[in-house]
Design a protein around this nucleic acid. Structure first.
Length: 167
DNA sequence: GCCAACGTTGGC
DNA sequence: GCCAACGTTGGC
């Protein structure tokens, strides 16, 4: 008997990266416009990567510790959670001897470039948009590097003029 | 560079 | 299990 692929509604995420380390332009220039999103060492974020992110999910690419910080582009999950290879590499800054291959502690996903904003959408601007007031990234003290985004928030972000290329 | 907020570590 | 100390994140 034929079976449909297990399927669920598309979900949306916000993922933080310091542009000095890996920017949206770095992602565009990466081989296959894809990178391994590794090095996450927070258990809540790990759980999202391991259990929740699925191929095709939408990603808001967020520049943190930037001038200004804000949403810099759109990406898509290209590979669901798998053991973070950097955790096994003694020469990597993210090496973690607690993580063993038979029982990995840390997980990564692959993320693929979709588009960059024509102009970054600064955090201060997001704060002034009633439609995205609920976004986790706006919450004080929120340091999670992988955050769920609601469909309503995603849609509101996608309608902003910052996405349009300049005339 | 400052510092608030948060997560982790480790002594007890 | 408590909690103080410490390290990290990240906006400003």
């Amino acid at each position: 008997m034929r079976r449909e692929m297990a399927s669920r509604p598309r979900r949306y995420w916000l993922m933080k990266s310091e542009p000095d380390v890996f920017s949206i332009d770095d992602l565009r220039r990466a081989p296959g416009r894809t990178t391994c999103w590794d090095g996450v060492r927070n258990y809540q974020a790990r759980n999202f990567l391991r259990d929740q992110l699925a191929v095709g999910d939408g990603v808001l690419y967020y520049h943190s510790s930037a001038e200004p910080s804000g949403i810099a582009g759109e990406a898509v999950v290209a590979r669901a959670g798998y053991p973070d290879p950097t955790a096994f590499d003694p020469h990597d800054v993210h090496y973690d001897p607690k993580s063993i291959r038979s029982r990995p502690t840390w997980y990564a996903v692959d993320v693929k470039f979709v588009r960059a904003c024509a102009g970054i959408i600064p955090l201060a601007r997001l704060r002034r948009l009633p439609a995205v007031r609920s976004m986790l990234v706006l919450k004080r003290g929120m340091r999670l590097s992988v955050q769920p985004v609601t469909e309503a928030e995603w849609r509101a972000i996608m309608t902003l003029p910052e996405w349009a290329p300049p005339e």
